[in-house]
Simulated scan of single mutants.
Amino acid sequence: MQTEVIKIKGMTCMGCVNSVKSVLEKIPGVGSADVSLEQKQVTIQYDAATTQSSQLKDAIAGAGFEVVN
């Protein structure tokens, strides 16, 4: 498993946190997604053999949030 921390802009409530967590956990290969509203980031554990970092970022953007580089 690989770990990646992605900063997210636009989360304002626990509903946002749940939305991000939900879209990420639906991606094959994602083991866990720990979303922090306070730190405005998500820590994702995933299998790099089946999942690309770009897929994770695209899913966050698709949920209506901005990925901060």
Rank of each mutant, 00 (worst) to 15 (best):
M1K: 04
M1D: 13
M1Q: 07
M1I: 12
Q2E: 15
Q2R: 13
T3G: 01
V5K: 04
V5H: 00
V5R: 14
V5P: 07
V5D: 06
I6F: 11
I6H: 07
K7R: 14
K7A: 14
I8Y: 02
I8T: 08
I8D: 06
K9C: 00
K9D: 09
G10D: 11
T12E: 09
C13H: 04
C13I: 01
M14G: 10
G15C: 03
C16Q: 03
N18I: 05
S19I: 04
S19L: 05
V20Q: 05
V20N: 09
S22F: 09
S22V: 08
S22N: 15
V23L: 08
L24W: 02
K26V: 09
I27H: 00
I27R: 01
P28N: 12
G29L: 00
G29N: 02
S32H: 06
S32V: 05
A33I: 08
D34A: 14
D34M: 07
V35K: 05
S36D: 05
S36P: 00
E38H: 12
Q39S: 10
K40Y: 05
K40H: 15
Q41V: 04
V42Y: 07
V42K: 04
I44V: 15
Q45G: 13
Y46V: 12
A48I: 12
A48Q: 15
A49M: 13
A49P: 13
A49H: 01
T50L: 01
T51A: 02
T51I: 11
Q52R: 13
Q52G: 05
S53D: 12
S53M: 10
S53W: 05
S54D: 02
S54M: 06
K57W: 12
K57P: 14
A59K: 03
A59G: 05
A59M: 06
A59C: 04
A59Q: 03
I60F: 06
A61N: 15
A61W: 10
A63L: 08
A63R: 10
A63M: 13
A63E: 15
G64Y: 09
F65L: 06
F65M: 04
E66G: 11
V67T: 11
V67K: 12
V67G: 07
V67L: 01
